[in-house]
Design a protein around this nucleic acid. Structure first.
Lengths: 258, 258
DNA sequence: GAGTGGTCTAGACCACACT
DNA sequence: GTGTGGTCTAGACCACTCC
């Protein structure tokens, strides 16, 4: 069999050019196709056999590449059906990146979302740095409040400000956000072709300022969880920066360590 | 080849007895050996070939079992050397389960630890539930303060209360805690044979009570991060419950999502 | 039944660490 | 050089899904 991705490197003598196994090269090729939207979120990708013959490697090598992409949550394998591009849609009753859990298991149900604001801005230094832009570049700022049911009553629990780069999200308005019922990241996928792949959060405890207190219906100075998140698309390009303020008197942030 | 772990189930007709592949049975056997301390944290386990012939399966099957255990952080593979039982010792400059990071990268250095208290108690309902004990059972309570360097000065940053089941930790005293320089979980491994494998945390923002404020040198009512952790050993047996209060004016809790 | 991913095997060879 | 884990292959068969 003749591997088409170059395995033996160029003949120039090098101490070991950061040796990369075949399956990682295949993984990179598949990633490229994902980035290029050759297959879109939710869609079926070619079978392992097809990919193997396309890349001129054995099925086992493709399998290992796909295994890693599935472990990274970029692909989703379903026995008997095929391998699918992962998506934030169809994540029924669970927003993938949201770790806030009700303290009492009974308190589950539909969230009420309210867009407080949605406007074009110029990025300040902090936002620009987080999004890899220059200060003054166009960004979109969205502010919203999420209210969760607690013993039957909707309690405003999350106040979020989020900033999006202006160019890829041109045309996003409060109306479009309001007219959509699924997760926000699913709307980003279908309407703007932006698939969030991973995110990093910085969590702090802060005291509620007057404005926050009012929107979350808590006393000024109440302790709130501040959750700053940078979300990335395929090539680790930052595409969203958000700051959430969470009430943690009825909910908590859950994290698993290993 | 004759697999010794039973692959074909008993002849009684069942819809499909939760089909478990061979490599998972091997994984379970290796896990048993870990639980039984046949190999201790930090030690080398037998080579894949040895395990394969011991279990009468192919090396590839052992490999897949070991791969999963390595992904779970129970084993550590090192090419050319072998596979080792993971340990909390030798985790230089990083306590595995601690996600608190200094805001400024310069502020890294040795932590100062101070055991405030270490006493035998009777478990209250909350502690008993977390540790799978009955209320009134003997537990050990430890309170300590961790001070981290911030611009050269040691700032008390973490106040932790932790509860341990009395029986497995018989003989733990403040002296032994003070006389040890590594991570606490490493001491648990070597002195008590308890290896913490995973943990779950519940995070909230709270206001500092007078006692907490005093120990952490902040104003009463200051927002603090409350981090409740249950830590588990091999068979998902809870072996520690702790509540940490973190100052987040100089540090933040970091979390990666995917 | 046909097609998909999932398991298991066996053998060859490579990269790495120790001695 | 020897032994370890890591890669790659090829083929057989199993479990699952859909037609």
């Amino acid at each position: 069999m003749a591997p088409s991705p170059t395995q033996t490197a160029d003949p120039v003598s090098r101490p070991t050019p950061a040796f990369s196994p075949l399956y990682r090269q295949i993984k990179a090729l598949i990633l490229q196709s994902l980035q290029a939207s050759e297959w879109k979120p939710g869609e079926l990708i070619p079978s392992e056999q097809e990919l193997a013959s396309r890349f001129r490697v054995s099925q086992g090598t493709v399998r290992k590449a796909v295994d890693e992409l599935a472990a990274d949550n970029l692909l989703l394998r379903r026995q008997g059906k095929g391998t699918f591009v992962s998506t934030h849609a169809e994540q029924q009753s669970q927003v993938r990146f949201l770790r806030l859990i009700p303290d009492h298991a009974g308190d589950e149900g539909p969230v009420q979302r309210h867009i407080v604001d949605c406007k074009r801005q110029r990025a300040n230094a902090e936002v620009a740095r987080a999004l890899g832009l220059r200060a003054g570049d166009a960004v979109l700022q969205v502010r919203r409040v999420l209210a969760y049911p607690v013993q039957g009553r909707a309690v405003p629990t999350i106040l979020e400000d989020l900033w999006l780069p202006g160019v890829p999200f041109k045309g996003l308005t409060a109306e479009r956000l309001n007219g959509y019922s699924g997760p926000m990241y699913a709307l980003f996928e279908t309407e703007f072709g932006v698939h969030m792949v991973r995110a990093a959060e910085k969590i702090r405890a802060i005291a509620a300022e007057a404005e926050h207190a009012h929107l979350l219906e808590v006393a000024r100075g109440s302790p709130l969880l501040s959750v700053e998140r940078t979300a990335f698309t395929y090539k680790d390009v930052p595409m969203e920066w958000r700051r959430g303020l969470y009430r943690t008197d009825t909910h908590h942030y859950r994290n698993e360590l290993s």
